[in-house]
Structures are given as structure tokens and as C-alpha cells.
Amino acid sequence: MIQDILSAVFILAGSIFMLIASIGMIRFPDFYIRNSASTKAVVLGVLLILLGVGIHYNDTIVFIEIFAILLFIFLIAPLAAHIVSRAAVITQVKFWEKTKLDELREYEKEQEEEAGGKA
């Protein structure tokens, strides 16, 4: 009984986090903000849902499988977000006008100076 209630609460909380993530995907103004929001909320949502599934089965093999899935997702999500954001900066996807870009501009200036020194 307690196992069922706990599992249902975890699964519902996880699906609500997934819903929040996709509302963020729709509402946020800029690619970079959308990327940050969706990555974090989706990882938390999948974590909660898989924990709920594991509590429902209450089996060692299932917990090992869930651990493997979570390991992949926790390795993958930050890596994918970083690489796609980097590709977006390189291909000059537009920023939101309120984003403060001073550090990025300084970095770009340094890169240009280094390239000029080498040439």
C-alpha cells in the first residue's frame, strides 16, 4: 500500500516536471535560456519517474537497469547541452536582447588578438 502511494507520488511529480520543462520550451525567449531550462527539468523529471518505477517493481535487477539509464542520462544531458550551445554560439544564433554578453565579447576579442599575433 505504502509502496503504491510512494511510487504514484514519484511518477506524478516526475511527469509534472516534464510538463514544466516543455512549457519552458514554449515560453522562454531565447535558445540558450530554453536549453538551460529544458535540460535541468527533464533530467529531474526522468530521475523521479524511473525512481517511481523502481519502487513499484522492488526488484534488484530493475534497480540495476534504472541505475544504468540514470548514469547515461546524467552523463549525457550536460554534455549534449554544452556541445549544442557551443555549436549555437559558433553558428551565431541570436541572443535575447537583455542577456549580458560582456564576458563573451572579451573572450572573442582575446581570441582575435591571439589569431592576429600568430598570423
Partner: peptide, 11 residues
């Protein structure tokens, strides 16, 4: 943009 579509495919 294309990165938007990549991220939404991920989600």
C-alpha cells in the same frame, strides 16, 4: 533556428 530543433528532439 536549427539548434532549437535539436534540443526539442532531445526533450
Amino acid at each position: 533556428s536549427l539548434p532549437d530543433r535539436v534540443i526539442s528532439l532531445d526533450v
